[in-house]
Structure formats: structure tokens, C-alpha cells
Nucleic acid binder design. Structure first.
Length: 253
DNA sequence: AACCCTTTCAACCGCGAAGGC
DNA sequence: TGCCTTCGCGGTTGAAAGGGT
């Protein structure tokens, strides 16, 4: 007995998406919002499985995606994050706004891996292939520290942003960020409960003992949008829709 | 122009986690 | 508590594009 298929394969399309399928998916999500991927294809009139729809939306159709080449800064950030997190592409993508885990994974395999190899570094361990000095980012080269190792499952019991991490990558904010879902004008914003639940889900460890500022979690501490330090209330959750809009919603628990 | 090889990246697959009952 | 369903993630595949001969 194998695992039951995620959908009825006999009546689903596979392979590249057509323009019409894209339009159908976009129109449906604009009207009803994301979620319920299992039932979405039927409701949207698509002969695709839910997983395929989800992937197409997340990796290609989402309006907040940043298309185009990776910048040098993004390159460096990916390398740093990979040194600390390993192949946790979704976590790495969470630190690069507008980039998807699939995109970063592909970019790693096609560009960065080769780049590191050409520098004599093992892409998995970030250690030199033939001995010598361990991998160091430009900033590290100014003040070399211990070699970064990908986290393993045991390490994950610790805080995501430890003092050790800060020692290794002082300019790196490893707090887990939250990618906000896309809401159409017709669909409703998240309820207070779902926002706090999302916060609890993604920051479960810290949320037990301290308030969460999403600005900080998104790495915007220095941005004026973040005013968490001026908010004395210990249970304020701040949501930012986007940097451009400068909008935010406070959710109090 | 034709063929072959390499590179890129969208899409698929299988698995584990999470949540509901 | 255990089962079932759904979702999300990471690894892998394969078609298309690009480049070389």
C-alpha cells in the first residue's frame, strides 16, 4: 500500500502552465485569496492538482515577487545564511524579500555552488576543499572568527539568533521573518487571532517570554517604521504590509 | 545549417509536520 | 491517542534556451 496520490492524476494537466491557466489562477486568488489548495483547482476550473497551483502561485505568479538577477548583496547574504542554516531554502528565502525558496535553491545550484568551488570552498561545509583558511565573508576577513556550520536538528532547539551567530555574522539578523500573504481588495485581512497565531507559529520560542515586533523580525530595526522600543505594551504585534506602502497594523493580544 | 553539449529554471515527486476529528 | 487530510519543504527531473563546433 502506497501513499494515496495528492489528486486524481488521470484528469489533471502536467507540465508547463499556459497563459490561460495562469489567468484563471490569478483571477481566483484575487477573488478568494490564498489557501485551500486542495479544493482550489476545482473551484477555479483548473485541471491541475492543488500542489501544482500552490507552486505556480508562490514561485511565479505572486505579485510581490522580485524578478531579475541576484545582486552582489543578495549573493553574499545567501552564502552567509547557507553557512548557518544549510539547505533550509525556505528560511533563507524568508530573509530575501521577493525571492522564493525555489529560486534561491536553483540559483545556489547553478551559480553560487560553482562560485564557491572556484574559490576552493566546499559548498556544503563552506570549508576549503584542500585545507587552508576557512571560509570568511569580506567582513569576517576583517575579523576572522570560527567557521560557520550548518545547523542540525539538535541545534534548532536553541534560539535562531544566538550570540554565537552574532559573533560569526555580526551584520546578519537571523530572526525568522514572516512572509505576509497576498490579500486581494475583495478578501479580508487576517483576523487578530490568525496574526498572533502566525506570530506564535513562527516565533514559538521567543513568544513565550517576550513580545514580538515584526519590524525587528523582518530586519527593519533601524528603519523608522519600527517603533517597538517606544511601545511599552508588552503584547503588541506589529505587521508591515510592505516597505513601499509604509503601512502597518497593530495586533494586540 | 545542423548537431551536440551545457546551462537554466519551472515543475514534479515524495516525505514529514501540523492540525482536525 | 491515533488516524487521516492537507500543506509546505527539499531534492530531483526534464524541457527549453544558449553556446560551441
Amino acid at each position: 500500500m502506497g501513499r494515496s496520490p495528492c489528486c486524481e492524476k488521470a484528469h489533471t494537466n502536467k507540465g508547463a502552465w499556459t497563459k490561460e491557466e495562469d489567468q484563471r489562477l490569478i483571477a481566483y486568488i484575487k477573488a478568494h485569496g490564498e489557501g485551500c489548495w486542495r479544493s482550489l483547482p476545482k473551484s477555479a476550473g483548473l485541471l491541475r492538482c492543488g500542489k501544482s497551483c500552490r507552486l505556480r502561485w508562490i514561485n511565479y505568479l505572486r505579485p510581490d515577487l522580485k524578478r531579475g538577477n541576484f545582486t552582489e548583496e543578495e549573493d553574499e547574504l545567501i552564502i552567509k545564511l547557507h553557512a548557518l542554516l544549510g539547505n533550509k531554502w525556505s528560511l533563507i528565502a524568508g530573509r530575501l524579500p521577493g525571492r522564493t525558496d525555489n529560486e534561491i535553491k536553483n540559483y545556489w545550484n547553478t551559480h553560487i555552488k560553482r562560485k564557491l568551488l572556484s574559490q576552493g570552498l566546499d559548498p556544503q561545509t563552506h570549508r576549503p576543499l584542500h585545507g587552508g583558511a576557512p571560509f570568511a565573508t569580506p567582513r569576517q576577513q576583517e575579523a576572522p572568527t570560527a567557521i560557520a556550520q550548518p545547523v542540525n536538528s539538535a541545534d534548532e532547539g536553541q534560539s535562531c539568533s544566538t550570540n554565537l551567530d552574532e559573533d560569526r555574522f555580526p551584520d546578519l539578523n537571523l530572526d525568522l521573518s514572516i512572509s505576509l500573504p497576498y490579500y486581494s481588495p475583495k478578501s479580508s485581512p487576517p483576523s487578530e487571532g490568525s496574526a498572533t497565531a502566525a506570530a506564535a507559529a513562527t516565533t514559538s520560542r521567543s513568544s513565550h517570554t517576550q513580545p514580538i515586533c515584526f519590524c525587528c523580525h523582518l530586519g527593519f530595526q533601524s528603519n523608522e517604521a519600527c517603533s517597538c522600543q517606544t511601545i511599552p505594551n508588552s503584547h503588541v504585534y506589529r505587521y508591515i504590509r510592505s516597505l513601499e506602502e509604509g503601512q502597518h497594523i497593530n495586533y494586540s493580544s
